[in-house]
Amino acid sequence: MTRSIPTALILLMLALPAAAQSSHQGHGSHGAPAATGAPKGQTGAGAMSMESMQTMMKTMMPSPGDAASTKDFKSADMKMMHDMAVPYTGNPDIDFRTKMIPHHQGAIDMAKVALAHAKDETTKSLAAQIIKDQEREIAEMREWLSKNAPK
Score class of each variant (00 low, 15 high):
Ala68Cys: 04
Pro33Trp: 15
Met81Asn: 08
Gln54Cys: 13
Met56Arg: 13
Met100Pro: 01
Met57Lys: 00
Lys79Leu: 13
Ala18Tyr: 12
Met56Ala: 14
Ala111Asp: 05
Lys58Met: 13
Ser63Met: 14
Asp120Ala: 12
Ser22Gly: 02
Met61Ser: 00
Leu115Ile: 07
Ile131Leu: 11
Glu143Asn: 11
Asp83Met: 05
Asp109Gln: 04
Val113Cys: 03
Asp133Met: 03
Met80Ala: 02
Pro92Arg: 15
Thr70Lys: 08
Met110Cys: 07
His24Glu: 15
Phe73Ala: 09
Ser49Glu: 09
Ile130Val: 15
Ser75Phe: 09
Arg97Ala: 14
Gln54Ser: 08
Phe73Pro: 00
Lys40Ala: 11
Lys58Gly: 07
His24Met: 14
Ala127Gln: 03
Leu115Gly: 05
Glu140Gly: 03
Asp66Thr: 01
Pro87Asn: 13
Thr98Trp: 06
Ser23Val: 08
Ala38Thr: 05
Met100Asn: 05
Thr55Pro: 01
Ala20Asp: 09
Pro102Thr: 07
Lys119Asp: 12
Gly65Phe: 08
Pro62Trp: 00
His82Asp: 02
Ser75Trp: 00
Pro62Ala: 01
Ala20His: 12
Ala35Pro: 04
Ile131Gly: 11
Gln134Arg: 03
Trp144Asn: 02
Asp72Ile: 01
Thr55Gln: 12
Asp133Phe: 03
Gln54Asp: 13
Asp77Lys: 05
Lys58Ile: 15
Val86Lys: 07
Ser29Ala: 08
Ile130Phe: 10
Gly90Arg: 14
Thr123Gln: 12
His117Phe: 14
His82Phe: 09
Asp95Asn: 07
Ala139Val: 07
Gly106Gln: 03
Arg136Ala: 15
Ala107Gln: 02
Ala111Trp: 00
Lys99Ser: 07
Lys74Pro: 04
Ala107Leu: 08
Gly44Gln: 14
Ala35Leu: 13
Lys99Gln: 10
Pro102Ser: 10
Ala34Thr: 10
Ile131Thr: 11
Gly65Ile: 11
Thr98Lys: 06
Ala38Lys: 00
Lys71Glu: 04
Pro39Ser: 09
Ala35Asp: 09
Pro102Arg: 11
Ser63Lys: 14
Val113Gly: 00
Gly28Thr: 10
Val86Pro: 01
Ser69Glu: 09
Asp66Leu: 01
Leu115His: 02
Ala19Phe: 10
Pro92Tyr: 15
Met48Gln: 04
Met141Pro: 00
Ala128Cys: 06
Ala34Glu: 14
Met53Trp: 01
Asp95Gly: 05
Pro62Glu: 00
Met80Asp: 02
Ile94Ala: 02
Thr89Cys: 11
Ala85Leu: 08
His117Ile: 14
